[in-house]
Write a protein that binds this DNA or RNA. Structure first.
Lengths: 192, 192
DNA sequence: TGATAAACGGAGGCATCCTCCGTATAAATA
DNA sequence: TATTTATACGGAGGATGCCTCCGTTTATCA
């Protein structure tokens, strides 16, 4: 006799959890290298599981992609919380923005991925928009509170500006330009 | 004896030209409906030619897509020249911008298409950027010369703003919003 | 240590990609 | 106009990817 609700449930199987992790990790790699339309069979191969297992965990390409993307967004959120404990608030903000640029730069597929998100599932869109806006807000408020930057730029505008920087850049060697633009923008936020 | 250069060339075959046209037209339809990753075999079917013919004319998906996109850009260029002959220069500018919105709206695939261009062949990017900038410049200069709008907004900025409006919108029912934003922006350009 | 719910792998059917080459045909030539 | 020949045509076919289905395996629970 088990004392739980009507729906008595077994503990999830250990191999299931493990495979899910492996798939997520493999998908991050494969999508990063090949964009979000990369072969799902390649993902399964990379993870060392059967294609059926992939589809059981993530019934559609979008489901897998969303899980990967959510994970990346969460990592950026954690980075923001970590940076919020640094001394110099303006530098913390700058570092976070630069981390975004580097993330996109090292993962060539991420650019296309971002575009899919921009016009895909609005759940995911809402989630990541909120999460990223909060991250920026955290760092921004601290810098504003310290009296170091102007207070009339809301986090949303900063996020959109960041995305704009990604979009407007070409494919080759855009990272230095993007980093410079971020620098300029952060400097522009500073009070004179 | 033919009086031409070392490379004596026949006139291109009529069927070849015709098929190229048909493929372009079919691709415009198919890509518009299904986005740039739509089936190429569907394009060939729609055009009423064999798949081999498609590949002979356009060796890669990108080549076909580029041709389609160039054609659309050229049409917008021609529209600008036509509008430049209208009476009211500000209205002409507004109409051209609205035509852009409608073009993208009726062709759902165009949004993804634009994104491909943004990170694809830089030839195509340069070509379309220049062509569209010129179109805007044509209409803008006329309105400036008539003293109706401010003179400190270069065509490039206007183009980027337009693209930004496309990107920032969600998938559903964004056309009214985009048209409104265009309106606001054009009104903002007016001298008080 | 069995019973069994849950997860696993991958074969198989279908779609698309792209290449290759025998056939057809439009332009050139006589 | 008839013949030649460069050029283009169509589509079969091999490779790959998508996704489903189901017989087999295995982790949990008693």
């Amino acid at each position: 006799m088990r004392p739980e609700n009507a729906k008595t449930r077994r503990k999830p199987r250990a191999d299931s959890l493990r495979n899910r992790e492996r798939l997520l990790e493999a998908a991050t790699q494969i999508f990063s290298a090949g964009g979000p339309q990369a072969s799902l069979e390649a993902v399964a191969r990379q993870a060392g599981v059967g294609i059926g297992t992939l589809y059981r965990h993530f019934p559609t390409r979008e489901a897998l992609f969303e899980a990967v993307y959510r994970h990346e967004v969460d990592l950026l959120g954690e980075l923001a919380e970590q940076l919020a404990r640094e001394d110099d608030p303006v530098e913390a903000l700058r570092k976070w923005l630069q981390a975004n640029v580097r993330l996109v730069a090292t993962k060539k597929g991420m650019i296309e991925a971002l575009q899919l998100v921009a016009h895909g599932s609005s759940d995911l869109k809402a989630y990541s928009f909120e999460r990223l806006t909060n991250s920026i807000g955290l760092l921004l408020d601290r810098a504003v509170a310290a009296g170091e930057i102007r207070s009339d730029v809301p986090p949303e505008d900063l996020l959109r500006t960041l995305v704009g920087i990604f979009y407007s850049q070409g494919t080759t060697d855009w990272q230095p330009t993007a980093l410079r633009l971020v620098d300029v923008f952060v400097d522009g936020l500073r009070k004179r």
